[in-house]
Structures are given as C-alpha cells and as structure tokens.
Simulated assay, not measured.
Amino acid sequence: MTFEGFPAAALDFYDDLEIDNSRAFWDANKHVYIESVLAPMKAIVAEMEPEFGKAKIFRPYRDVRFSGDKTPYKTHQGAFLPRAEETGYYLEVSARGVRIGAGFYHASPERLAGYREAVAENGSGRQLSRIVNKLRSAGFDIGGDRLKTRPRGVEPDHPRLELLRHRSLVAGRMLGFDPVIHSAELTEVVRADFRAFGPLVDWVVKHTAS
C-alpha cells in the first residue's frame, strides 16, 4: 500500500472512541480502524524503515491489569522505530491529529546514571546542550519526565541543571490538523523531522546504550 495520508476518518474514529470506549463500539467500527488508521500507519512507517530501522506498531489494546482506568482501547495509534532500548523515533495519530517525536522515553537506573554522567561532563554535556537548543530554535518542543528538584550531588548553579533533571528526554511537535497529514506529503515531513532528531538520538545511543 502506498501512503496517501491519514484520512479524516482516522481522526473521527478516535474522536468517537474517546466518547464510547467500549467493545461494542470497537467491534462495530474495527473496519474503520484497520482501513483508516492501521493501514496508513503501516504504509508510512514502511517508507521510514530503510533509513531509520524496523518499526514497531503498537497494539490498540490497553493493559488494564494494574490501572484504575479500565477502558479497553488506546485513544491513539503509535509507531516506534527503535535505535536502542526505549530510544528512537515515534509517530502517532489520534483525535488531535499527528504527532512526531524522538528521544529516550525511559531509562533504567544504569542508563540514567550514564546519561547524567555524560551531561555533567563538559564535552558531551555541551554537545547535548547545542543539540537541544538547535531543536528548540527550529520550533520543536523539548520534553520528558523530569525531577522537580535536582539530582543528588548536583550543584544548584550547574550550567546544565535543566538537562540533568531529565529522567527521559524527547523532542517533537504536534502537527495537529495541518492539511499535510491527509496527504502523501506527510512522508517527507516525517522524514525531515526524523533527520532533524538524528543528532539527539545518536547522542543518547552513544552515551547511554549498553
């Protein structure tokens, strides 16, 4: 299948699913999910795989075993192209449109220690600062899970304190309802963003991957 964009039916499907997250709705509209969500997602990540690696398309079912929220279905469809553990490129479609991102989404204590050691070291830490500042200047959001205070042993005036607070670090942007999401041109938008995220992903892999 050639990617021609996510149809409006994909966004409408998730809009309705947020209102009626039930098996009855899912069973009655599963064909919409397969045709308008899953098939286009498979098509666009297939375009990315030769350059960015094999993609994982997430299952639509929520794991409700340990959650107070027992709604059975995810209200978005995500795809992840990993470079290392919990590190790589991400694409999502939901009722709010399309989101593109990259970075590391979780780190074991060992990987987090490696990340903070690299951020604290002047050479690698300054390099990450330049990468993050360049992405921010290009209009990308910089986010991730962060400590509210500072890591133990870090001075309050450390020049990279904000980066040291991160327990995950991601860059991305929400395309939302931009008309491009409904066209084949989205392929080049995603590819360009993934390439822009490349230095961040490379830095994380180099300094945290075992």
Rank of each mutant, 00 (worst) to 15 (best):
N122D: 13
A138V: 00
R136G: 12
S124P: 04
D141H: 08
S137H: 13
I142L: 13
D141F: 03
R146D: 12
L164C: 07
E121L: 15
R173V: 05
A120G: 12
G144T: 01
V170H: 06
R150L: 10
G114T: 01
G153Y: 04
V154A: 15
G144S: 00
P151I: 04
Y115T: 11
S137K: 14
V170P: 03
F140T: 07
R160N: 05
V170G: 02
E117I: 12
Q127V: 10
A120Q: 02
R150Q: 09
I142H: 12
D141M: 14
R160D: 03
E155T: 02
F177R: 15
V132S: 13
G153W: 05
V170K: 10
S129C: 15
A120F: 01
V132P: 04
G143H: 00
I142V: 04
R130P: 04
L128F: 03
L135P: 11
E162D: 05
G139E: 04
G125R: 15
L135Q: 07
G143D: 07
S129N: 02
V154D: 04
E121R: 14
D157M: 08
D145Y: 10
V170E: 09
V119I: 15
L161W: 05
L147H: 08
S168A: 14
G139M: 07
H158W: 03
E155Y: 05
G139C: 04
E117A: 14
K134L: 06
R130A: 15
F140L: 11
K134T: 08
R136N: 08
F140N: 10
L175T: 02
L161F: 13
D145H: 03
L135D: 05
A171L: 11
R173W: 09
I131Y: 10
P156S: 00
F177N: 10
E121W: 00
A118N: 14
G123T: 04
A171M: 09
I142M: 09
V119W: 12
L175S: 07
A138D: 11
E162Y: 01
D141N: 07
E117S: 15
F140P: 02
R167H: 08
A118S: 05
K134G: 05
L135A: 12
S124I: 04
D141V: 00
H166L: 09
D141A: 13
G125P: 05
E117M: 00
L128P: 02
L128T: 07
L163F: 13
A118E: 07
L147M: 07
L147E: 00
Y115H: 13
E121P: 00
S168N: 03
R165Q: 07
R130L: 15
E121T: 02
D141S: 03
P156T: 05
P156G: 12
G139K: 09
N133D: 08
R126P: 06
L128C: 08
A138T: 10
Q127A: 14
F177G: 12
T149D: 06
D145M: 09
A171H: 08
P159D: 01
G153T: 08
L164K: 08
R152K: 15
H166Q: 09
L169Q: 15
R167C: 03
S137C: 01
L161T: 02
R116D: 10
L135N: 08
R146P: 02
L128D: 00
R116N: 00
A138K: 14
P156Q: 03
V119K: 08
R160C: 13
L164P: 11
L163Q: 06
